[in-house]
């Protein structure tokens, strides 16, 4: 279950990807005052990225890999 399993490595990669998404400078791209479906850009972006990260986590964990 432990060791450099593919699952573990995928999760670490996802962690790094998440760190990138939720930090300067990517965050500043969405700092403007635009709206998507009436929702402020930054709010929309953070929640969509968050949901995506959770979705990927679920995918990695639940994926039946030999």
């Amino acid at each position: 279950m432990i060791g450099p399993t593919l699952k573990g490595q995928r999760l670490v990669a996802l962690f790094l990807f998440g760190c990138l998404l939720f930090n300067f400078p990517l965050l500043s791209l969405f700092a403007g005052s635009g709206r998507i479906w009436g929702i402020p850009l930054i709010y929309f972006y953070v929640f969509i990225a968050w949901a995506m990260i959770i979705g990927l986590m679920a995918l990695i964990i639940e994926h039946k890999d030999p």
Binding site: V12, L14, G18, F22, W50, I53
Partner: peptide, 17 residues
């Protein structure tokens, strides 16, 4: 809440240990 979300990805190594 974003911090713990990211950390959860590392649980596989850290928390399990």
């Amino acid at each position: 809440y974003l911090g713990p979300t990211l950390m959860a990805a590392l649980w596989w190594y850290v928390l399990l240990k």
